[in-house]
Computed example of a mutant assay.
Amino acid sequence: MKAFKTDMEHYGAGGALVKRENASPVTGGTIVYFGVEDCAVEESRVEAAGGQVIKPKMSIGEFGFVCVCMDTEGNLFGLSSMI
């Protein structure tokens, strides 16, 4: 389990990632986006870690940039940044 603390004094969401037995990857459901300094920097680390870049860094206008990746188990996740 990996917990993300909630800090009501700063922007962001709290929560947790939990491994469950008998759970299988989902590619058609919700995608969790992690806020990072620069999507391109973190995206460049995905394939070396055994994952796959599904949608490279793209602009979402005034809301910054996002990319979508797949982890080694087949789960989709996103990265979000303002630069």
Rank of each mutant, 00 (worst) to 15 (best):
K2T: 11
A3F: 15
A3N: 13
A3P: 07
F4Q: 09
F4D: 08
K5I: 04
T6N: 14
T6A: 15
T6P: 03
D7S: 06
D7C: 07
D7R: 03
M8D: 12
M8P: 09
E9P: 00
E9N: 15
E9R: 14
H10G: 01
H10E: 11
H10Y: 12
H10V: 15
Y11R: 15
Y11T: 15
A13H: 12
G14F: 12
G14A: 08
G15T: 03
A16N: 07
L17Q: 08
L17C: 04
V18H: 15
K19Q: 15
R20G: 06
E21P: 01
N22S: 09
N22V: 01
N22I: 00
A23M: 11
A23W: 13
A23H: 13
A23F: 14
S24D: 11
S24N: 12
V26I: 11
V26R: 11
T27R: 14
G28I: 08
G29P: 05
T30G: 06
T30R: 11
T30S: 13
I31M: 07
V32S: 13
Y33I: 02
F34R: 05
F34L: 15
F34A: 10
F34T: 04
G35R: 12
V36S: 01
V36R: 00
V36F: 00
E37W: 00
D38Q: 10
C39E: 07
A40F: 02
A40E: 12
A40L: 06
V41M: 03
V41S: 01
E42Q: 10
E43C: 08
E43G: 03
E43S: 11
R45G: 06
V46K: 00
E47M: 10
A48Q: 13
A48P: 01
A49K: 04
A49P: 01
G50F: 00
Q52T: 14
Q52G: 02
Q52I: 12
Q52H: 11
Q52F: 09
Q52M: 13
V53K: 03
V53D: 06
V53Q: 05
I54E: 08
K55W: 10
K55E: 14
K55G: 00
K55C: 07
K55T: 10
P56S: 10
K57S: 02
K57W: 01
M58D: 07
M58G: 12
M58F: 08
S59Y: 09
S59T: 06
G61W: 07
E62R: 06
E62S: 10
F63Q: 15
F63I: 05
G64A: 06
G64Q: 02
G64K: 01
F65K: 07
F65R: 05
V66A: 07
V66S: 07
C67P: 00
C67N: 10
V68G: 03
C69H: 05
M70T: 08
D71T: 04
E73I: 00
E73P: 01
G74I: 01
G74Y: 11
G74F: 08
G74D: 08
N75Q: 10
N75D: 07
G78I: 08
G78M: 06
G78Y: 02
L79G: 02
L79E: 02
S80W: 04
M82K: 01
